[in-house]
Design a protein around this nucleic acid. Structure first.
Lengths: 149, 149
DNA sequence: AATATATAGATGCAGATGCATGCAGAGTCA
DNA sequence: TGACTCTGCATGCATCTGCATCTATATATT
């Protein structure tokens, strides 16, 4: 006999709704903190961080795209802004004439350094300090499951 | 002596980063599912659902704003679209000449009914089916903690 | 080699968002 | 009642996003 009360399904729906609310709210607060400190949005940090990880050679846009899960046109314009602001540069790509390589500039490296204290403080006050180590670990485990398939 | 390896802090940072990634990704997929079915975005569902919960009298925009955590100007324009599309209506507010009441129309009620199967299926396939009941419950517990303060 | 197809990335346009500000009605206080 | 402030909501403007499409180069097929 089918479950008439559907309790499990309801709990999942509610958890889903809560996940959306909470994560949106957290993101908003952290973005606001960066803005208060006169810093660019989180997306800039994400891109520059990946470029730093990529080191000297830099990254092709499509590689960056996979890493940060950003739509192609979106990334294209974001890098426009970063290049325009002097935080990244486009270099010709030796292997593939269609594309180019994106690399961090010194200013970009510097921006990362300037953003981190503000970003870290925001993460801590909105997120880190609210969870115990064990809760953090449980959350990570669940996020791992959600990332499958 | 301060902890040089800073393992706990790192785990929190990584969990934070993962939370953003996963929730953004899930949201994107669910939105895409709605779009595939020719339905409006999630935000429309959220607003209409709150209006349905509010019942006959409807809701003041500022009340709605608190419930769905949407910026004021943002909600103002979203309701413009909903009214324009015939899913909600603005009624004069007897108690306060500055504002109005928002209420669901029959078409709005109908849209909710049409969206739900698609929305529910997307939640289930992107989220629900990936978690056991106990994982769901753990996630909810953590989200509760993150919602405090 | 010539043609067809696929892939990397940019871009025009429309719709959405953020910010600041405007405005009208409410509440307060003299 | 009149001046002052506050609150609810809208809106002009700039930026950002989504979608569709375009260009150029790369790859596959014959």
């Amino acid at each position: 006999m089918p479950n008439r009360t559907n309790k499990t399904g309801d709990a999942k729906i509610e958890t889903w709704a809560r996940l959306l609310r909470v994560s949106r709210n957290l993101l908003e607060r952290v973005e606001a903190a960066l803005k208060r400190d006169g810093l660019p949005p989180l997306a800039w940090y994400d891109v520059l961080l990946e470029l730093r990880r990529a080191g000297k050679p830099g990254l092709r846009p499509f590689e960056l795209q996979e890493r940060i899960l950003l739509a192609q046109y979106n990334l294209s314009r974001l890098t426009d802004r970063l290049v325009e602001a002097g935080y990244a540069e486009r270099r010709p790509c030796p292997d593939d004439g269609r594309g180019h390589l994106l690399a961090l500039t010194e200013d970009g490296r510097d921006l990362l350094r300037r953003m981190w204290p503000s970003y870290r403080a925001a993460i801590d006050s909105e997120f880190g300090r609210k969870l115990s180590p064990s809760e953090t670990q449980k959350l990570m485990a669940v996020l791992d499951r959600l990332d499958r398939d």
